[in-house]
């Protein structure tokens, strides 16, 4: 049983009195699909139709040949996360969609920061902050320096916020999160094995 977030009846999913985008918490949705064209717009349409914003999105080939993996974060209620995964699985070429909370995942993201070299040279605090946060400079020239940082979302954002407060950041980009699940169960492998045996027995 899911716990309803509706404060009116505690039973229905009616969100009419609530702004869905601001209620709830951060969920990470992992989606596996066949590598067919047009899937990304189908998946993103599931979010837009239900008024949920995608916070981050990463798409790449998975370790299973021919299968694409989408890692999507969004802020919503658990009920909504469940509905989103069901609606995504309804698309014919989606193999599996599962939602997770942060404690169920190993999470990583990468970021690049472009920093003004004159500002960097003027203020020794900048390189100190970079060092403390485990960032590394990958390029320095007289005009700008490029700082690279990988880590959890909050580490990446903390580095950015501190440097930005010092007026050092010219450009900033994050990859959005990538993650693997904790736990011993490989849900996709199990699903594919089950489907393969169903195909053979058909």
């Amino acid at each position: 049983m899911i716990n309803s977030d509706c404060d009116k009846c505690g039973r229905c999913n009616n969100k009419s009195e609530k702004d869905v985008s601001t209620c709830g918490s951060l969920f990470t949705i992992q989606v596996y699909s066949e590598n067919t064209p047009g899937l990304l717009s189908q998946i993103s349409a599931v979010f837009t139709r239900r008024q949920v914003n995608i916070e981050t999105l990463n798409v790449c080939a998975s370790s299973t040949p021919g299968v694409h993996k989408y890692t999507i974060t969004c802020v919503c209620t658990e009920e909504m996360a469940k509905m989103l995964t069901k609606q995504m699985e309804k698309r014919i070429d989606v193999l599996q969609a599962t939602y997770y909370t942060d404690d169920q995942l190993f999470i990583l993201e990468a970021a690049l920061l472009k920093i003004s070299t004159p500002v960097l040279l003027e203020n020794p605090e900048i390189s100190k902050i970079a060092r403390i946060h485990g960032g590394s400079f990958v390029e320095v020239n007289p005009v700008y320096a490029t700082l690279e940082k990988t880590g959890r979302t909050e580490d990446v954002l903390s580095l950015y916020n501190k440097l930005n407060d010092l007026g050092a950041v010219l450009q900033f980009v994050r990859t959005g999160r990538i993650c693997i699940t904790k736990g011993t169960e490989e849900k996709l492998d199990n699903y594919l094995a089950k489907r393969e045996s169903e195909r053979i027995n058909k």
Binding site: R11, N14, M83, K86, K90
Partner: peptide, 22 residues
């Protein structure tokens, strides 16, 4: 919906899992 069959236990038979609890 807030006043729909609230007194009842509900059983839903469907072929489409996305309809449950929608």
């Amino acid at each position: 919906l807030q006043k729909y069959a609230r007194q009842a236990k509900i059983i839903h038979l469907d072929i489409d899992p996305s309809e449950f609890n929608k």
